[in-house]
Amino acid sequence: MRLLILGGTWFLGRALAEHALQRGHHVTTFTRGKSGSDVPGTIPIRGDRTSVEDLTALAVHGPWDAVLDTSGMTPHLVETSTKALSDATERYVYVSTVNVYQGWPTLPLNDSSSVRPYTPEGPPGESGADAYGREKAGCEKAVSDTFGDRSVLLRPGVIVGPHEYVGRFPWWLRRIAAGGRVLAPGTPDWPIQPIDVRDVAAFALDATERYLSGPYTLAAPIGSATFGDLLETCRQVTGSTATLEWVNHNFLIEQRVGEWTELPLWRPYAGTWRVDAARARAAGLTCRPLAVTVADTWAWLNDGGPLLGHERAAELGISPEREAAILAEWDARRG
């Protein structure tokens, strides 16, 4: 197949390009050339997708059997891209997010859960996460309006693995490798279900090759791993002697610890890690064990894997001073 990836040089886009080449597909990537590096074997085309002129010029290089969009963040951007490429491709695969569901992260979700309505302006006091989900819902609408049942909407939860540009797993790996007392959030049996970037890429290509259509939620199976599994595996693969100090959710909330940021992947809601991806599993989604993803991420970091400076990376992690202060207060509270 002839595939066009909007993106294709870092994280999911890179994994898609690598997997597609391994499957024998002809892969073109469209990027500004400012982030990451081109995957050997791809045909890179430079341009800015915010420019109608650049998109029009890109369309001339078609036709393609499918476009895989990993970088569409706003409804206007995606609408412009779908219209410019509508005559140059048969299908459109859009990478959305679990944030489009109204109940995430507080409620358990499945493929039938309600999606946020899209409005150009959000309600007063809208959070950043809600705004992100609303915008992505608008992106999905733009894809569906142009391509209808010739489109696939992928709604992954948290994506992790080698080449991760935000750095959630890398932060935990490096923190535990540094040793000492580690502030571990909640309880070790708190379930999590991040999904490996390579498994998302594989399903996206399966959906493309099999001409699937419609929305698919993507997440590891509910109950397949816990926060304890994650941190213990980090300790094992790094060879660390760190001590994990499990601190309950309510105390962390009282201390105003930044959920999802100061302690990456910690969010104390019942629905955060109860996302049922049954439709995707029925269509062939498979997820490798969490321990494999952790080990491969550590191997990538030790092989010189860089974090590429994504704007969200600066939000991650708790300072050593704040971590020590919270642990000291925890000790005092327990007497």
Results as ranks from 00 to 15, higher is better:
L68F: 07
V143F: 10
G62Q: 05
A325S: 13
L205Q: 00
T226K: 04
E321H: 13
H249C: 07
Y92R: 02
W260Q: 12
S35F: 07
Y132R: 05
Y92H: 07
E245M: 15
E254N: 11
V98T: 13
G271Q: 10
L244V: 09
N110W: 09
S114V: 14
V197Y: 01
L230F: 04
T29Q: 01
V60R: 14
V160D: 10
R2D: 05
W300A: 07
G167Y: 10
W172N: 03
A137R: 13
L230Q: 09
L173Q: 07
T70A: 11
R46M: 04
A142S: 12
G239R: 06
E232V: 03
S114H: 10
L244M: 12
A204I: 00
V93Q: 05
V237T: 08
T80P: 01
A84R: 14
I222H: 08
A324H: 13
V160N: 12
A328S: 14
L109N: 04
D303Q: 14
S144Y: 13
L21D: 00
V197E: 00
H26N: 11
K34I: 11
Y216V: 02
T97C: 05
A283I: 01
A283K: 01
G13T: 01
L68M: 12
G7E: 01
R322M: 06
D87R: 15
L218Y: 04
D65T: 04
V182D: 05
M1Y: 03
A184R: 11
T29P: 00
S112W: 06
E79W: 14
D111V: 02
E329G: 12
L212I: 00
T187S: 14
V39M: 05
